[in-house]
């Protein structure tokens, strides 16, 4: 059963996943060439100064890509299901409905983490090539909130698409937008690092929105 659910999610996501992965890697390459160009054309100590003292983030271009990735993957997973009420096929399968949602969301998050994780590693090695280890390592603490925004964007997208009541859809969209906007507050390397453990622990709570919307979706005509 689990392999069947994963097969279905892969079939829905494979083109979109490949698309967003290529897009993310494309942005990473752009960042790589921009940093390389800066290092080669300017005095490297000036670039270091900009990074360490002025907190100029050279990989800022990728900031919204994890969020876009989350939203795209959520839509790619849910739109084929909710359009023409195809979700009923899955809801009739001999599998507990919450387990079905857990497996689907887990599959989506796995693809998201691959699509958002590879660029983080890529950018880390890009920074590692020209910056001190300490600066390179802050790639993860700086990108962490953006990746978390992507996870929340993914969960929010799923919850909003599943929610059958329009007023609740709007409410959920506002709540998720506000929480996501928190991830983009502040400037500089590792700005949200002190708050990240708390934000990361809160994120799974948003799964409850997905279950709640999923339950209403099924009870109101799927």
């Amino acid at each position: 059963m689990i392999s069947s659910v994963l097969l279905k999610e892969w079939l829905k996501l494979k083109y979109f996943f490949t698309g967003v992965l290529v897009l993310n890697i494309g942005v990473c390459l752009k960042i790589y060439f921009e940093i390389r160009g800066l290092i080669l054309s300017e005095h490297p100590e000036m670039i270091w100064y900009e990074a360490i003292h002025l907190h100029n983030i050279f990989f800022r271009d990728i900031m919204f890509f994890p969020l876009a990735t989350g939203l795209i993957l959520a839509a790619a997973q849910l739109v084929p299901e909710i359009s023409r009420r195809r979700m009923r096929i899955s809801l009739h399968l001999p599998l507990h409905r919450d387990l079905l949602l857990v497996l689907s969301v887990a599959a989506g998050l796995l693809f998201f983490l691959i699509a958002a994780g590879i660029p983080a590693v890529f950018i880390y090695f890009t920074m590692r090539a020209w910056f001190p280890y300490e600066v390179s390592l802050t790639v993860f603490t700086t990108m962490g909130p953006w990746v978390l925004a992507g996870i929340l964007g993914y969960l929010g997208g799923i919850a909003v698409l599943l929610e059958p009541l329009k007023t609740r859809k709007v409410f959920l969209a506002i709540v998720f937008s506000v929480i996501i906007s928190v991830m983009y507050t502040g400037v500089g390397y590792g700005w949200l690092s002190p708050a990240m453990p708390y934000l990361a622990w809160l994120a799974p709570l948003f799964l409850l929105c997905v279950f709640s919307s999923g339950h209403r979706f099924q009870q109101r005509g799927a």
């Binding site: 279905k8 079939l11 829905k12 084929p80 023409r84 009420r85 195809r86 009923r88 096929i89 009739h92």
Partner: peptide, 13 residues
């Protein structure tokens, strides 16, 4: 065995 109105099937399969 449930046949949904409109012969619902996963069109991406």
């Amino acid at each position: 065995g449930l046949l949904h109105e409109g012969h619902q099937a996963y069109e991406f399969m």
